[in-house]
Design a protein around this nucleic acid. Sequence first.
DNA 1: TAGATTGTTAATCGATTAACAATC
DNA 2: TAGATTGTTAATCGATTAACAATC
Lengths: 212, 212
Amino acid sequence: MERKVSESVINRLPRYYRYLNELSKSGIERISSKELSQKMGVTASQIRQDLNCFGGFGQQGYGYNVKLLQEEIGKILGLNTPKTAILVGAGNLGRAFAINTSFEPRGFKLIGIFDIDKNKVGTTVKNITIMDYSEIKDFIEKNKPVMAILAVPRTHVREVANELIDYGIKAFLNFSYAEISQTDGISVENIHFSDSLMRLSYKIKENYSKDI
Amino acid sequence: MERKVSESVINRLPRYYRYLNELSKSGIERISSKELSQKMGVTASQIRQDLNCFGGFGQQGYGYNVKLLQEEIGKILGLNTPKTAILVGAGNLGRAFAINTSFEPRGFKLIGIFDIDKNKVGTTVKNITIMDYSEIKDFIEKNKPVMAILAVPRTHVREVANELIDYGIKAFLNFSYAEISQTDGISVENIHFSDSLMRLSYKIKENYSKDI
DNA sequence: TAGATTGTTAATCGATTAACAATC
DNA sequence: TAGATTGTTAATCGATTAACAATC
């Protein structure tokens, strides 16, 4: 029925959401695509095109209501329906992510944390007691979490991911430096620090040679 | 002289690098664009086009030498010239990043860590003693680091970034949930956990409604 | 009503894919 | 030499930008 919205558009939505949130917090009630485009460093055309993939949220001659538009984008992103998530791997990174992240405003709810390290099992992070990885199957079958955050060693990612898919997990936020083989119906979002560093390395190189 | 290489190409380079590294480690010496394309889930055309932005690294009738190609991509990314970096903000996230990341193989060298929390100052992470943020100006002027990893509260990012630019920092890896205003000659790479979560939220929503 | 700004169609631009001659 | 596969040019596809009629 509806045509599929392109990846590029989706990738821009969180940024719109963030800007609208800031505008809203600073008390601005309405904004035109032109004003917003200037603030964000994009074209007004792009903003209007992007938004009109989902419907007409503006009003001719007026612009967009900031609060309303933010709400609509939130709905498009599905932030209003909390999806249950578990964290696999409670090392430095896993714990830091759990502590630093506001799950609820982003559409998720963290309901379990797992590790294989017996020293960690039983301790708590964000009021959640870390469980032994051996209990994960039962936990998933009982509580049906939708998403798993993977912060396990690179060598274990694929194995763990496959297991969790078997148990019923539908989506991954993957921090481990390896890729989860693309399976049908499984959503994956990777955060690879190494890739970011390498891109930055390239950019620095480019910026310098430009000057010479 | 050379035409600017598009962002899309650059963004794919680290992934090529990773795959070649894996191939190399598993003892594979040569690979054709077709084989690689199948492994990576892209087109062979794209691989050849991407690589030929930088030069002809292959051989007709043979394909690509895995090790050589990996090396060349490493050079393109600038991984062979270590760039000095400092970490600003030694909270959970900053520390976890410092501990988990291999800087040298990604073209960087971590030479200093800063925080404002007096309780953290003096303790060490990865053999680096955390310094007080008040010392950062002197440190930068003396040691001339090129890049700063920002893991400070959202409310402080812009202020800190502007200060560091004044002191001579040329690039940022930014974890804080705000954007650094794009300045000429300054390279920025953002890692926004919130954006990743929201994109995943959207994907989950889409994957489900597709099934219905 | 006049002015502003949207939603949307059309034009342009760039990126991806296909095709093939060059050549190992 | 014959087969394979690159490097590169041409064709296609999609995304971005421009333009403008609709309308608040």
